[in-house]
Every structure is written in structure tokens, then in C-alpha cells.
Amino acid sequence: MRCQTCGDATSPEDNECQRCYTPLGQPAVTPGLPTYSVRGIGLAARIAVGATAVLYLVVALAPLVGSVMARQARADGDRDLLAVAVVIEALLALPMVAAYLTAAVLVIIWTWRTRKNIEAFPGALTTLGAGWAIAGWLVPFANLVVPARVVANVARDSLHRRFTPDLVYVWWAAWLVFSLGERLVSRLDSRAYDRLPEIPFTDAGYQAYIDYYRDSLLRNTVPAVACVIAGVALIVLIQRISAAQEARIARALPAWPTGPVWPSAPVWPSVEGGPGGEARSTPVP
């Protein structure tokens, strides 16, 4: 007897498949329960997450531009260049914010669909309800734990693991470092900028701007690295989970018929004999 989920041979001595943990005799997907396609939304989410990570790196490196322009402003005595540096940073942040919001919406939708799908997988051990796939990201303090628990549940039951894959821990730890670190860095930058002279008249005033951009670049290092790690880990998780769920759902779908097979034209015996007296058959047109 073979498992209907993974196709491995099973033993009557076991109550479940030793590879995918589907109970013996159960189909890959429970009939009558809804499932959702996650291939398209998974691809869109991966693209948005990747774009967010790249654009955040651009924003994190923006102080390099500010430092160069502050040095040029000191050399030329042109204070307007300092205002231009601020405008450039703001313009670089706009695409990142748009990508971030897009990625957030797509990841939430993908998480909800994958969480609903495992309800139709025999042998899945669901923990939090599917509603937490959405609310977990929005409720304060709960968003520090719940999304990771939901994705961990989905990963275990989609990838046939007894324990949560290590990649889930890597993703969530990096995400928390990025999320909390980015907020802290933003506050520190805001306070440091408020202490700068509004209009620098001396080399010391220009040097204060140069030092600000240098320190800001250093402060951005930890959130930027964490953002890249979290983005790569999440992209891999989305790809693996989506592929596993799509393959399992496909096994439960009935094969589509190729079309009716038409009978061949009947053949009737001819009344005329052929050479040697044999009867010949003539097909009916």
C-alpha cells in the first residue's frame, strides 16, 4: 500500500506515513474542504519582498550621498546643497515605502491562504486559527510572536516536518532585528538631525553635517543586514511552502479526460467473393 500524499510505501504496522505523516488510507486532500492556489500570490509576494530588501539597502546607503554633498557644500560654501541632500533621501525612501506596503499585503494574503490549505491536509496539526494569519500582523505585541507561529505551523504541515524548520527561526529573528532596529535608528537619526545647526556658517557647522551622515550610515548597518537576511529567508520559505502545497493539491485533483474515443466504422461482409472465392469485407461509409 502506498501513501496517497507522497507515494511512499507504507506498513500496516504504522498508523501514518513515515515520510509525510499522512494517516494511512487518507487522501492527500480531504474531499469537500476548500483549497486555494498559492502559486501566483507566492510569486508576487517573493518579488515584492525582494524589491523591498533591495530598496531598503538603497535607503540605508543614502547617507553616502548626503556625506558627499555636505563635503561639497563646505568646499563651495553652498548651503543649498544640504537641503538637496535631504530631498534626495526623501525621494529614495518613497519607492521603498511603496514596496514595503505592497509586500506586507501580499505576504498576509499568502499566509492566510496557506494556513487555510493545511486545514484540508489529513494529519495536519493546526494550532492558531486562520484568522490569526491576518490579525497576528496587526495586533500590537501579538505581532512579535503570532506571525512566526502561524508560518511555523504552515511550514511543518506543508513540508512534512515534525519540528519547525530552522529557516523559520532565521527569518523571524532577522525580521525582529530589522523591524525594531529600523525604528530605533530612525529615532536616533531624528534626534541627531535636530541638534544640527539650521544654517552652518563655519567649517565646524558643515563638519557637523558630515559627521551626522557618517554616523547615520553606521547606524543603518545592522537593520540593513537584518533586512537582507529576513528577505532572503522569507523568499525561500514562500517558494518551498507554495511548491509543496501546490504539488499536494494537484495530487488530489482528478485527471482531466482527453476526450471520447469514437468507435471505428462497422465492417460488413461483402456478398461478392474475391479471387480464390474468399469473402471480402466492405466498410460502411
Rank of each mutant, 00 (worst) to 15 (best):
N15P: 00
N15G: 15
C17P: 05
Q18T: 13
Q18V: 07
R19D: 01
C20W: 11
Y21S: 12
Y21E: 02
Y21H: 15
L24H: 13
L24S: 10
G25F: 09
G25P: 11
G25I: 07
Q26H: 14
A28I: 01
A28G: 12
V29A: 09
T30A: 13
T30Q: 15
P31Q: 08
G32P: 08
G32A: 05
G32T: 07
L33Y: 13
L33R: 15
L33T: 12
P34T: 06
P34G: 07
T35A: 01
Y36A: 10
Y36D: 02
S37P: 14
S37K: 10
S37G: 15
V38L: 02
V38P: 06
V38G: 01
V38S: 11
V38H: 08
G40D: 11
I41C: 03
L43G: 14
A44Y: 11
A45C: 05
A45N: 02
I47L: 14
I47Q: 00
A48W: 07
A48D: 06
A48Y: 11
V49W: 10
V49C: 05
V49Y: 08
G50L: 06
G50M: 06
A51P: 03
A51R: 00
T52R: 00
T52G: 12
T52E: 08
T52Y: 09
A53G: 15
